[in-house]
Amino acid sequence: MSESTRDAHQIPRSSKACRRLFGPVDSEQLRQDCDALMASCVQEARERWNFDFITETPLEGDFAWERVRGLGLPKIYLPTGPRGTWDDLGGGKRPSTSPALLQGTSQEDHVDLLLSCTLVPHSPERPEGSPGGPASQGRKRRQTSMTDFYHSKRRLIFSKRKP
């Protein structure tokens, strides 16, 4: 099913819904706010996981990070595009750490994290986090950042490989 099907709902020429609501939009301001908010997302993730996602270095905190080798990932998880492809992931090869990671797309971010390390919490943890409730000490149990999804995927793949 292609885009063309939805295009059956073309925007009518005289659609009243095509309008700007609050005057001109300052693109420069949008850009700055976008960068600032993304930076705060990264900072939240850093604190949540005691891991620096930009330099890919573990930090002091609740979680112990260790490098994963020989995941033997299914093809679907292999990155495509400008960052190149690795056809052998079984030999512990991984791309060199990329400080520019977060300037790339989130998809690259995702794949690289998945390859680079797994998360070992000090205490047992439910694999699937529950959606975020109000902030509380139950931090081990909720998805407090977008990286929680990487986390559960990592665990899933990792545990599958174990005998």
């Binding site: 949008l30 976008c34 908010l37 993304m38 997302c41 939240e44 989130s106 959606p131 975020g132 998805q143 407090t144 950042s145 977008m146 929680d148 999804f149």
Partner: peptide
């Protein structure tokens, strides 16, 4: 770009 910002702030809890 803002899609990513909103996803991050919603903690990817979309359902």
């Amino acid at each position: 770009e803002w899609e990513l910002v909103v996803l991050g702030k919603l903690k990817w809890n979309l359902a």
